[in-house]
Design a protein around this nucleic acid. Sequence first.
DNA 1: ATGCTCTGCTAAATCAGTTTAGCGACGTGG
DNA 2: CCACGTCGCTAAACTGATTTAGCAGAGCAT
Lengths: 341, 341
Amino acid sequence: MGRERATLADVARRAGLSKTAASMVLNGREGTRLSAEAHQRVFAAAEELGYRPNVAARSLRTRKTATIAFVSDIVATTRFAGGLIRGALDAARERDHVLLITETQGDATFERYAIEAILDRQVDGVIYAAMATRRLAVPPAILGGSVVLLNATSPEPLPCVLPDDEGAGAMVAETLLAQGHRDRIALIGRNRQKERDPEISLAADARLRGIRRTLAAAGVALLTEGFCPEWLPEHGYAAMRTLLDRPTRPSAVICMNDRLAFGAYQALGEAGLTIPDDLSVISFDDDPIAAWLRPGLSTAALPHEQMGRRAVEVLLDGGDGGASFVPMPLRRRRSVATPAD
Amino acid sequence: MGRERATLADVARRAGLSKTAASMVLNGREGTRLSAEAHQRVFAAAEELGYRPNVAARSLRTRKTATIAFVSDIVATTRFAGGLIRGALDAARERDHVLLITETQGDATFERYAIEAILDRQVDGVIYAAMATRRLAVPPAILGGSVVLLNATSPEPLPCVLPDDEGAGAMVAETLLAQGHRDRIALIGRNRQKERDPEISLAADARLRGIRRTLAAAGVALLTEGFCPEWLPEHGYAAMRTLLDRPTRPSAVICMNDRLAFGAYQALGEAGLTIPDDLSVISFDDDPIAAWLRPGLSTAALPHEQMGRRAVEVLLDGGDGGASFVPMPLRRRRSVATPAD
DNA sequence: ATGCTCTGCTAAATCAGTTTAGCGACGTGG
DNA sequence: CCACGTCGCTAAACTGATTTAGCAGAGCAT
């Protein structure tokens, strides 16, 4: 690849200076007493030869590789991962860094492999990402360097980047209140396991807290809460059907994520009910399907790209060491309206 | 990170041998005349010190980095990318390699940046991937090394990995024929641009060819073909509505991808028609929604993971230099049945 | 005893940078 | 005239591996 790359020695020779001089000029070292003319000559030579430093040689000496490891449990394969990676990629590029991606798949052997690969390559930092917002254990081996948790927290006091799920819950509830919904707001997607075990999910509890806090402040209580074993369409479908069997039909339904909402749409469609005229639906995530549904689903978007970006910023520019919450913007579409009656 | 890593010199010292000896033993060099005892001592020392070679130092000398660059136009951010990356990641791990990910976003400046980052790091090979199966131009700068195109072809004679869209088209058509559909098979998703310009899509034309060839062989012609400006749900919805306005209602509809099929489902739902009793639907891609739809959508799956894997295999193990077509397996769900009348 | 080959191993060069230590020329103040 | 500091620059060490060239000693034939 690139058969005859010019080396620093080539540049120095052409500039009629030593490697030392060339190195210092190209690295923009302060306090060196090289003449303006020497600077000129080095820059010119580098330019003419199309010189680019060899990263391996440099990092051998400096122990810096301009490389960030992006380690995820399984995130790189999910469609949720795209934005995370893209944001990280963008921010990394802006800081002249590059991303090394590995995946542990939640497997100890793979994790060990990933860690070794990372250590062997002396990356400048590690972004440890989780697919679902949750708490996880960071392998001690990488604690020697700088680590930022993405979409995750850990028992260790590491900087982390999280979506502001609680704020999103509040905003979702407020949106319904603002439209005039009050005593007939239902919820789909309660799940004890997710709410209780932070190793499984942090989002469930946070979203719920935001919703409850906001409704309570307005003196409103949830009409009913549907439990779901998972947050998948089929469970949203089932929960919605149960909901419709009750004597009081809700005026609005909050779904804990878009996949549940998709299932709810299916159930409503079968029941011959129209969204948002008969019933408003609002949700979380901004999965691609949210925009594809008819009518479009209003939902609090997981700011994946922002989060990926933030993680790199915290890693490279230094964060305050605490948690960094990224706001979840509400995507207003047509699934929420003022109740008819 | 890993503050005091043992170096080769440490291992050599502990084994009471020279660095040369240690290096040769650890690299399993043939033809060296080092005693069995020397081998033992080196292995033991390396083990005891937890020795791992420094990749930067090694690649400075050998010009090998055990790193593959995964360059994509925009693929890393799409949910289609997940599988591609995952497959590549797995195959790379099996061969003790690691993946460096960059994205060009179709932007010339970003592309230049990506190429430079890659060249600077002396990666062992490049996987150049596209989000949509298409033809693209590979930047000449990387043609010096080994390159494999993933989900793409190029004017240069480079090895490439592609999904077998034509085979998938044939299988889809065969599936309908096998269920007894004949003269009332409709198609949604014709698109002149996609079919004609290989820089936009290779899939459209290939799928169509497969469908036509198979139907023709059975002496069947398509009932009607719906054109769509894009392959998005709204267009599938519109096309399906048009289809239902025609005098003869089709017994089955082939959609060029799952998003169109999703739109078609929506139109059918509104029209009060039941899948598959009133009408069968079959499609391509195996987007996650295909499994979430009610009934589940039968579709020819894009074998992303296999493709990513194959790309690494071709790159590292050497391919035959030609195109490598990965079969698209049919996911049989409930959207296809024998026509009622 | 000499020359030769084979065995088992090592010194030193090399990769391409960064960094430390310091050199010679010049100016200046005492 | 000498000591000292500053300027402008460089030689050489160093990073941690691989690789080339070759050395000392043993065994064997002549």
